[in-house]
Design a protein around this nucleic acid. Structure first.
Length: 576
RNA sequence: GGUCUCGUGGUGAAGUUGGAGUUCACGCCGGCCUGUCAAGCCGGAGGUCGCGGGUUCGAGUCCCGUCGGGACCGCCA
């Protein structure tokens, strides 16, 4: 039907007869004998000059055949790529008329209520921004696949109907018709299957896998999302980071044209010390500064006896933060869990202004300024608490006060390694909770304190972080029954319980499991950042809203009584 | 489950101390127009101010509830 794409026409095509197809982006009439029609396809816009009376309106689908010619002098439009040429002597075929669209099919729709855009997603996607985003996504998928293939990974598809597993995120359940009362779950990840593929000798597996989690939605979370999921046999941690890092770097290069530097690494401990979070945003400074020794002998009650004191310097913000804003910061700190927040302002003469300054010795005051490199006009924020709380509170404040939008360059990738094996205590059982999952290999250097001090044991788990967003995580897995038993014991899981919950997973490991490890990272998040979006809905063709609905299809919908009966399901009346 | 925030013709906004569905831009429909380009000029249609209740002589505006969108917290091993 067509010989060229709209956006491809250039002076090199002049005097050629061409046919283009697309949607009418704009019509400008100048009487019966002259009209300009801007025709749009996914490549761009070309101006067609119509010299007879043709009724074409916005979003009509048309085929236009005519001759490419250069535009008359003074009428070149430098705003579009095809602006030096136009199509003349046009024959217009209306392939389909159209209703007027509910919103402009161009950048103006960026300001339209997102719900309306989602309701008419098929029109929204005609826009250049959405076309670009979806094509960026395809580039990332393609580059990731190519990279994984080059590295000898084999794509294996794993089932969508899987057994429900008790740990982890809430699952979507699918009722079984053959066995009423029994349910499949939709996979939160192919975790179990990919490890079994290692037992099965696949050696290097990957999949661009759809994962589902029935947890509340956010800017960076949808019910369904795509992950690059991978697992490798006979490898150590470096091998995994190397392989996954290569795929990520290739994906970034495919989109930006620039190959990022090798991804740097930081341990979890360092990340907490310096940035106060386990997904540090390396694009800006304001790092946490250690002050515990500065106040080692202080008289100030709030600091005396605190095991960890740290501060951050908010550059040149002293003036901006009046009483109200400082109170709001203090509230924020308390909400996170701090007992309080100490603020100080560095005055023009280099002295400190703060409600607590009278409790601090002159030596302490000057030491604080030196440690934090305070300059006149700076705001200093200090927290004293247990180490983890101090880090966490200041890390949050650092992000609140300094973090740019996620998509704003430069791209700073970082591996965070050596996560703690256990995190927190299960309130019901009093036992530690797994930091990653219960099949994660403890750090070999920490095995001597596994029983005596389990909370200090590091793991062979790692995260990949980009601009403060967690892209994904992985670990070296346990492949020895003895080690697995020790971990279950530490978690308070009995052998009976372990067999009941994880039996179908553990048994295969007795038949010869190779040492293995893997990783999974969220493609939606990576694509969003590379596409310059701060919301993954913008890179998903048909996303759900925050309440989990699809304004276009109206999903979820009520089931027919007949369907429910067949499945042996009765729906309870809504709670009063 | 919680905090905050938004909801006014198809779209985006304005709407003052509570005083007539008022206004602006875009879009739409009709007319004029031979070089425009998110064209220009003239005219027109189009709204249950999300929904329900309350206060009031009178509510887009104030109060209560509810529904929907969004951001965040919880949650996401």
């Amino acid at each position: 039907m067509r010989s060229h794409m709209c956006g491809d026409l250039r002076p090199s095509e002049i005097s050629q007869t061409v046919s283009v197809c697309g949607w009418v982006a704009k019509r400008r009439e100048h009487g019966d004998r002259l009209a300009f029609v801007d025709l749009r396809d996914h490549t761009g816009i070309i101006q067609c000059v119509i010299d007879n009376d043709v009724d074409v309106r916005s979003e009509y689908v048309v085929r236009i055949t005519g001759v490419v010619r250069s535009r008359p002098q003074g009428t070149i439009n430098s705003n579009i790529a095809t602006g030096e040429v136009e199509i003349g002597d046009c024959v217009v075929e209306v392939l389909r008329s159209a209703e007027a669209p509910p919103f402009p099919v161009d950048a103006r729709a960026d300001d339209v209520d997102e719900n309306v855009r989602l309701q008419y997603r098929y029109i929204d996607i005609r826009r250049e921004r959405m076309q670009r985003n979806l094509r960026t996504r395809a580039k990332v998928n393609s580059a990731v696949r190519a990279s994984m293939e080059r590295q000898g990974f084999v794509e294996v598809e794993t089932p969508m109907l899987v057994p429900s597993t008790p740990e982890g995120a809430r699952e979507f359940l699918v009722p079984s018709r053959k066995e009423p009362g029994s349910f499949y779950a939709l996979p939160q990840s192919p975790q179990l299957f990919k490890q079994l593929l290692m037992v099965a000798g696949i050696d290097r597996y990957y999949q661009i896998a759809r994962c589902l989690r029935d947890e509340d939605l956010r800017a960076d979370r949808q019910y369904e999302f795509m992950q690059l999921d991978a697992e490798m046999s006979f490898v150590n941690q470096d091998d995994v980071l190397e392989a996954i890092g290569e795929a990520v770097v290739c994906a970034a290069e495919a989109v930006t044209g620039v190959r990022p530097d090798p991804i740097e690494r930081i341990t979890w401990r360092q990340a907490m010390e310096r940035f106060g979070v386990d997904k540090p945003d390396l694009r800006f400074g304001m790092e946490l500064t250690e002050l515990t020794s500065v106040f080692a002998g202080t008289e100030f009650k709030a600091f005396a006896g605190a095991s960890s004191i740290k501060g951050i310097r908010v550059e040149a913000k002293a003036e901006e933060f009046g009483r109200n804003k400082l109170d709001a910061l203090t509230d924020r700190a308390k909400k996170i869990g701090a007992k309080g927040l100490v603020w100080m302002k560095v005055a023009a003469d280099g002295t400190l202004e703060s409600p607590v300054v009278k409790f601090l010795s002159a030596a302490e005051q000057s030491a604080v300024i030196t440690a934090l490199q305070g300059a006149p006009g700076d705001l200093l924020l200090i927290v004293a608490d247990e180490w983890e709380m101090t880090c966490e509170v200041l890390g949050q404040l650092r992000n609140d006060l300094g973090r740019p939008p996620v998509h704003q360059g430069p791209y700073r990738y970082v591996w965070v390694t050596e996560f703690p094996l256990f995190v927190g205590i299960n309130k019901e059982t009093g036992q530690p909770k797994p930091g990653h999952h219960p099949f994660c290999q403890p750090h070999p250097d920490d095995l001597h304190m596994f029983e005596s001090d389990p909370m200090s044991v590091r793991s062979m788990a790692y995260d990949l972080v980009l601009n403060g967003w967690e892209l994904g995580s992985g670990s070296i897995r346990i492949h020895e029954p003895d080690m697995q038993r020790r971990v279950f014991t530490a978690l308070g899981i009995s052998e009976e319980e372990a067999n009941r919950k994880f039996g179908f997973f553990l048994k295969p490991f007795t038949y010869g499991a190779p040492p293995h490890g893997g990783f999974a990272f969220g493609l939606d998040r990576l694509v969003a950042i590379l596409a310059g979006e701060d919301n993954i809905r913008e890179v998903i063709a048909f996303p759900k809203t925050q309440s989990g609905q699809d304004p276009m299809t109206n999903a979820p919908t009520r089931a027919e009584p007949k369907q429910l009966e067949e499945l042996g399901i009765r729906v309870l009346p809504p709670k009063a």
